[in-house]
């Protein structure tokens, strides 16, 4: 195989990978738009019917979301907090994204 042909194959291979992954980027964007559109449509008619007073409303939690706020009482670094959360998840067999930690208190 000549050097020119080898370079063309390598360049077109790299380009193919790029184009494919850019295409996936577009697909993910489309999926997001479609899903958000459907979610907005479903939410729209339900809006006027309020079954719960404002103060009692419970925030909707996405089971796949990671994040939130955590109150920490005591002298603990982030690594320790992460370890505690991982251990609780492991012991309870509940995935971390389905657990809500409101606070962690250090017991002396």
């Amino acid at each position: 195989m000549g050097i020119g042909q080898a370079l063309i194959i390598a360049a077109s291979g790299f380009l193919t990978v790029f184009l494919m992954l850019v295409l996936l980027w577009v697909i993910i964007g489309v999926i997001n738009k479609v899903v958000s559109g459907f979610a907005a449509k479903e939410a729209a008619p339900a809006a006027p019917v309020k079954t719960m007073p404002e103060e009692e409303a419970v925030p909707v939690r996405d089971l796949n979301a990671y994040g939130g706020e955590l109150a920490v009482y005591g002298d603990m670094d982030d690594k320790t907090i992460a370890c505690i959360m991982a251990i609780v998840s492991d012991e309870t067999k509940i995935p971390l994204n389905q657990l809500i930690f409101r606070s962690i208190r250090e017991v002396q």
Partner: peptide, 29 residues
Amino acid sequence: FGPLIANPSSLLMGAGAQFGIFTAFLMAL
């Protein structure tokens, strides 16, 4: 795949990291 779906621009870095495949291919030749 959640982190990828949440941030699809990550795909570009996944593509860039295949650079070695084609470099090593040329070197092997």
